[in-house]
Design a protein around this nucleic acid. Sequence first.
DNA 1: GCCGTTTTCGGCCCGACTGTTTTCAGTCG
Length: 581
Amino acid sequence: MKNVSNSTIAKLLHEIGEYLAMQDVPFKPRAYEKAADAIENVDDDLSEIYKTGGIKALENIPGVGASIGEKIEEFLKTGRIAYHEELKKKEPVDLSGLAKVEGLGPKSIKHLYEKLGVKNLADLESAARNGKIAKLAGFGEKSEEKILKGVSFAKSYRGRFVLGSVMPEIRLIEGRLQKLLGVSNIIVAGSVRRRKETVGDADILIVSKNASPIMDSFTAMPEVVAVIAHGKTKSSVKLASGINIDLRVVPEESYGAALNYFTGSKDHNVALRSLAVKNGWKLNEYGLFKKQRGSAQAWKMIAGRTEEELYKKFGMDYIEPELRENTGELEVALSHMLPKLIGYDDLQGDLQVQTDWTDGADSIETMAKTAIVHGLKYIAITDHTKRLAMTHGLDEKRILKQMAEIDRLNKKFAGKIKILKGSECDILKDGSLDLDDAVLSKLDVVGVAVHSLFNLSREDQTERIRRAITNRNADILFHPTGRIINRREAYDVDIDTIIGVAKKTGTIMEIDAFPDRLDLKDEYIRKCIDSGVKMSIDSDAHSSDHFSCLEYGIAQARRGWATKESIINARPLEKMMRCLK
DNA sequence: GCCGTTTTCGGCCCGACTGTTTTCAGTCG
């Protein structure tokens, strides 16, 4: 799970691709890039794959053939790739740093190195400040200005944004554009629509007959700090928050095709397009086209007004955006076997809620009241336990007191919401739990969670969790892998073993909906479904505004192909309780 | 360099926008 070597190898292959692009080598850059992307997405360590299956197993990774396979083998054996070092010697530049500058690609980087000796961001900045870049052939005043802006952005921001952190701003802008004159339809496409856990930018589509005033309003929004493009059908801006927003205006008859195209993923689109080609059709952002009989040139549009129509033409079921990653959804859609995904309104309860008894901000009562507003029928109060001293975690005595308080509140809220007695019980180093079994057995819902010793070996961590969820009182494994997106790697644990133990012991795996956790991730959700392990989607709320996070947990579940049946808190209270130990 | 119901050679997505150009190369998604 901790693919330190995977990401290193991916980075090296990616750089090889860029070096080859600099030299204008055809096709190879794409090949290296594709292999690098595929390796980023491989769940198991390449070293493990190599150990068990040798170079042949490496070549099973899509995009990896004989030549790249050998290079991976070389890295695993020696820690380096000679080909990469050779290329780097010719152009010793900080590729990944320079490529972060908006508008700087391999060709420009090469040019700037050869003419001005620019090797890194600092060199680039000083060359631009001294007016050297504007004088270069192929560059000018504007490019120099753009580079200076790009450098300051590259220095201040790196990476992608957690979806939940940018969603409010994107929705604000969507709402504002919707009100503009002449906008007949608007939707946010791209990875935002697919509800990826992190997004790099947002693509907004608009149907309108009169685009240019809309584009003007868009590029003049108060949040805009840089206009990257301003055209008739496409404009692109950078906001103060650091995120890029693209706006595209599409004709009504192409709306479905454009939506499909700009929703992606790229892999999904490529697969769909090649399917079109196999049928003798052509698919692009304007529609699905069929060649006119008797005419060499003319294409006739056969679908494209809606996405439903488009997928139907291919003979497949409509594919929800969250599934469009080319991980089998096209084949399954063709055989009409797609699961009916859990809906955004399907949750009836929330099984992880913190309060001001420990590190939450609000009282049990406030949390219950807010949960009612969110349409929930039950919540479990799951404060931390004593081992987590910094949160003033509950010991046996205090949790008994809390249970009495919940009894009192349940009388008050009778008929409106049921408050369940629960715990987020700490898993200690040896896998034992932080509270006595006698007390745990009195609770309605026991979540168990790792909050310490993230660096145990894979064997020890796996055994620790195995032992914890084998406890007959442990109902749910909270945030099972412990990752914090963009901040902390998952701890090293054998997830397949854990899922196997969960199946055997009837333990529920949690999908923690907190936007920077989303733990389980989508692949593991699919693994749980395949193994018949049930899950819960919990907000992990630490204040009353956090119930809205449930949306991101549902999105994550959908990305993992989860139906309502797999998620226990999509059931009414009594049926949910029967899923617990 | 990879891939294959077009399979061991010959393709590989392609259109929009920008800036610096007088017709196009580079970048992006």
